[in-house]
Design a protein around this nucleic acid. Structure first.
Lengths: 244, 244
DNA sequence: AAGTGGTCTAGACCACCAT
DNA sequence: TGGTGGTCTAGACCACTTA
């Protein structure tokens, strides 16, 4: 009997099954998965094969292993934010946790270009949230977040403002939406009046613009974010070739 | 007998030994390494352990495996350039190979800030090379490359201009210098007169500035490159969370 | 057909954590 | 002490390339 033409290796099937369970919320954020021995039994594979599947999810930072304790769904704490989702650092290279201040929280409709990137229909309801991020007390980044209301049904300004965790942490713990990846597109722009005022720069000053699409399992988009960064004293740090 | 406090796993030692051999040029660019069975024998480890070491080097794109053929030192061809070291894409997302045009080739001395990043002494001899990169026939990027002369002893304008491969390919094949990683720092700047002319934009137009340090084995810096990008029709694409 | 990397398994032992 | 992940090994078999 000929082999399947596009037969995926067993460990990929196991990985896909794990991702399906994760996407279904079988193991909530921070929860321990069953032990590797039990998972291997459940999928009827050897422990080596199971480990290879988990290895890949650990490399993608979806899962976290802790020797002696178990394997966990990675949580969105300050460390993960700083190391993997916030690349603006001081010009001297020092990393610093941004301090967000809510500027506006509105409801609206998705523009066509937003709808395309969010995989929703133009005109669908969205939240528009605006934040100023301070670094060392100085406003450096102006963020505009666009969220499909369908994914965050009961979100309110109060909930957003009173969260005691990171923004992606809120998505994860309250809405079961786990951001696992993001794609960023960077361009240079000139500051308009509103932005100049918010960031304390001159109109026409050069700004770094970051257009981010945040994705959950299966590369489903869940958030759009535009960041305007004053790079007078900060820069965007990218590391190529480590596995990116 | 107590275990070593900071004992590295065997496969890490094997990996370090492989990197040492690579850095020493034991297997030149594009050459096949000995088979996994032979390498396992050489390091006196099981094939599984040897494979784990090679796995990591493959993930870092230092080595390339080809089933049925062997394991090779990764070469710097157009594909590797496009996928891992050149992140400027058209605004519609299409990737395109840049076409470089040499603008200037000079010898000079390292400025203090350059010396720091290149791990050489201020005043050491360097090459300064300026390129304009065209995309779809239009000038989009102005590159300034700084190279320590000590690492590229016989480099001349003619050699640089007449190469029939990528720039990193030239470093690799002619000088045995294999760029395996790069760190990029991005900021927004306004175009000065010279840059505006080279890129065909107005003085004061916003440009994306990329400061890259290219590294070889053991994170030794080998090249500094400053790119000024006209992001009117292009953008810098970064993928977070895939392993970056 | 011979040689290479790719997958899968089974089991032993170690290091770490909770109790 | 028992359970967890981490390492290392040995071997079988498969898929692919080259000649």
């Amino acid at each position: 009997m000929p082999a399947d033409l596009a037969a995926a290796p067993l460990y990929r099937e196991v990985k896909a099954a794990l991702v399906a369970s994760l996407a279904a919320g079988e193991w909530p954020a921070g929860e321990a998965l069953p032990s590797e021995a039990k998972l291997a039994e459940r999928f009827r594979v050897s422990i080596g094969t199971l480990r290879k599947a988990v290895d890949e999810l650990v490399a993608e930072r979806v899962l976290v292993r802790q020797q002696g304790r178990g394997t966990f769904v990675a949580t969105h704490g300050p460390k993960r934010l700083l190391f993997h989702f916030f690349h603006v650092v001081r010009a001297d290279g020092e990393k610093e946790l941004p301090e967000p201040a809510l500027v506006a929280f509105d409801r609206g409709r998705a523009e066509p270009h937003e709808a395309g990137r969010l995989a929703i229909a133009p005109g669908d309801r969205v939240f528009r949230i605006r934040n100023v991020l301070k670094l060392a007390g100085e406003p450096v980044v102006l963020d505009t977040i666009v969220l499909p209301q369908a994914l965050f049904p009961d979100l309110t300004e109060k909930i957003f403002r009173d969260r005691d965790e990171t923004i992606y942490g809120l998505y994860q713990t309250r809405y079961g939406i786990n951001v696992v990846r993001a794609v960023e597109r960077l361009t240079a722009r000139l500051a308009d009046r509103g932005t100049a005022k918010a960031l304390g720069v001159a109109v026409g000053a050069p700004l770094l613009r970051i257009d981010r699409t945040a994705l959950t399992y299966h590369d489903r988009p869940v958030e759009l974010r535009t960041s305007l960064v004053n790079t007078a004293g900060h820069e965007y740090l990218a590391d190529l070739g480590k596995g990116a």
